[in-house]
Design a protein around this nucleic acid. Structure first.
Length: 271
DNA sequence: AGGGTGACCTGTCGGC
DNA sequence: TGCCGACAGGTCACCC
């Protein structure tokens, strides 16, 4: 489910409300992708200072330490003063003075991890290799070009890997490449400056637009208020194999790269 | 060293 | 109707 837009939309939907909340209790359900890394009682009495995002991770800064949350493929968060009893797929409840933050994650690829600081080994392992944030001011074109120039893999997979730029998952990689007119199979290192500049702009535009539309709800994504996203309605290629390209009318094609589906228009993305 | 593959886990859908 | 395989928004550990 969640790529950068969905994670950011989630963050925006509860960050203000949970800020300043005092943690009363943490309940963990079935195991998630990684262990919490501390006793749940350790968090009692701590305060949530703010909620940041790094790539597809949400970082809850506490007055001491931080919680790293990841939504995996199927995770979503809810935050409310009163929530129904935990269901089978509700694997984490963070009870606070302002309400309960609940992680719902059927596939359990998500994670809730405690770190003493952002320099703690576990935080470094998860965040240390992450690339540039595409939104905001820390995404210079020159660095993007240099990053792509050093990669011999297909551009789609370089985007997905998150080591050059973070937050671009399977939906938005296809969408950004379409917008930039670049074939997903093109070797990243062979893309010239002008085309990299188009991709740089496309990544920013697609992600920002998706945040504005509340993310993409393909199956079950919703923000912490329980509201769906609508970006999927304006997808140009994702999940549109066999349908006519919205620009040129040619049939959208599907291929597999690294066991993931890639969608593209053979006419609009010639190379 | 970097690139490719399998693994994690559950739900859903299409085909036979 | 029922079963089985393929696939789904992510990403790490491991192999050559």
């Amino acid at each position: 489910m969640p790529e950068l837009p969905e994670v950011e939309v989630t963050r925006l939907s509860f960050a203000d409300r949970i800020q300043g909340a005092r943690i009363q209790q943490l309940r963990m359900g079935k195991p998630l992708r990684w262990p919490l890394g501390c006793d749940t009682s350790l968090l009692q009495g701590r305060t949530v200072l703010r909620v940041r995002r790094r790539g597809k991770y949400l970082l809850l800064d506490l007055d001491r330490g931080l919680l790293l949350l990841h939504l995996g493929m199927s995770g979503s968060l809810h935050f409310a003063s009163e929530l129904p009893p935990a269901g089978v797929h509700d694997h984490c409840d963070l009870f606070t003075s302002r309400g309960t933050l609940r992680l719902h994650d059927p596939r359990r690829f998500g994670a809730v991890v405690y770190a003493d600081s952002q320099d703690a080994p576990v935080a470094t392992k998860l965040l240390g290799h992450l690339g540039m944030e595409p939104l905001g001011d820390e995404f210079p074109l020159t660095a993007f070009y240099a990053g792509l120039h050093a990669r011999k893999t297909a551009i789609k997979q370089v985007l997905l890997a998150g080591e050059v730029v973070v937050g671009v998952g399977n939906i938005y990689a296809s969408e950004a490449l379409f917008m930039a007119g670049i074939r997903p199979t093109t070797k990243a290192s062979t893309i010239g400056r002008a085309r990299v500049a188009r991709l740089h702009e496309a990544v920013r535009t697609v992600l920002a637009r998706a945040v504005l539309k509340g993310g993409s709800t393909l199956r079950d994504f919703s923000n912490a208020h329980g509201e769906s996203g609508y970006f999927q309605l304006e997808a140009m290629v994702y999940d549109r194999q066999g349908l006519p390209c919205r620009v040129c009318g040619i049939t959208i094609q599907l291929l597999r790269q690294g066991q993931r589906s890639t969608y593209f228009c053979p006419q609009c993305q010639k190379r």
